[in-house]
Nucleic acid binder design. Structure first.
Length: 197
DNA sequence: CCGAGGATCATCT
DNA sequence: GATGATCCTCGGT
């Protein structure tokens, strides 16, 4: 509670700039990701992201369009979700120009609304662990893989203005082997909801 | 606190 | 046939 309240500045715009992928990853911090479900709104402030820009060897789009990554080549604001390790889903927001193939991976949220629903979806009670990783947040919000290819809002998933972070940390990305030296991970300094330090 | 190992399967080579 | 934008548990320190 105190973590978001300590940053009182509201986002000036009604939607974030998604034109430049690396900048978008930074810009998305503090925005509220909302899933409007029949049971109610489930939402969290974005506290950690990673950019997967054009020509990035670590990007799913690096070797061109395929069945799996087709959504990455759609308009910015398109949802791209994929299954990893045969069991987890991750959520991306497509960025940049159509046909290029870029996206931002949302890695962690600070729970904001529908926390009881998150706990039910996760089968957990510890608020710290509800949304502290890319697959955990998908499960907490109850997002489905077939949201892939739809635009934000069409899948009842959308962004709302949140707060402007006081401190943004930029580091290398997590869990990848290719282009591991690129500093394309961003997270909010001091947040206790980040996946890893 | 930390590292190792396993779960589990669609996608790509 | 191998891999992977992960997560959880377990054992050691």
């Amino acid at each position: 509670m105190t973590e978001s309240m300590s940053s009182k500045t509201r986002h000036p715009k009604s939607s974030p700039d998604l034109n430049d992928t690396v900048h978008a990853a930074r810009n998305l911090l503090g925005w509220k990701l909302v899933h409007a479900t029949p049971a109610g709104r489930i939402a969290g402030y974005i506290v950690e992201t990673e950019a997967y820009p054009d020509q990035d060897p670590a990007s799913h789009a690096f070797r061109g369009p395929s069945t799996r990554n087709a959504a990455m080549f759609e308009d910015k604001g398109t949802i791209y979700m994929y299954r990893i390790y045969g069991m987890h889903l991750c959520f991306n927001i497509v960025t940049g120009k159509p046909g290029v193939g870029e996206a931002v991976l949302v890695r962690a949220l600070q729970p904001a609304e529908g926390i009881d629903l998150m706990k039910r979806n996760r089968g957990l009670d510890a608020e710290q662990k509800l949304t502290n990783g890319p697959a955990n947040l998908v499960q907490a919000l109850g997002m489905q893989q077939d949201y892939t290819g739809t635009k934000l809002s069409e899948a009842h998933v959308y962004l709302e203005p949140g707060f402007v972070p006081e401190e943004i940390i930029q580091t290398t990305r997590i869990g990848i082997t290719k282009a591991a030296e690129q500093p394309w991970r961003f997270y909010i300094g001091g947040s206790s909801y980040v996946s890893k330090r």
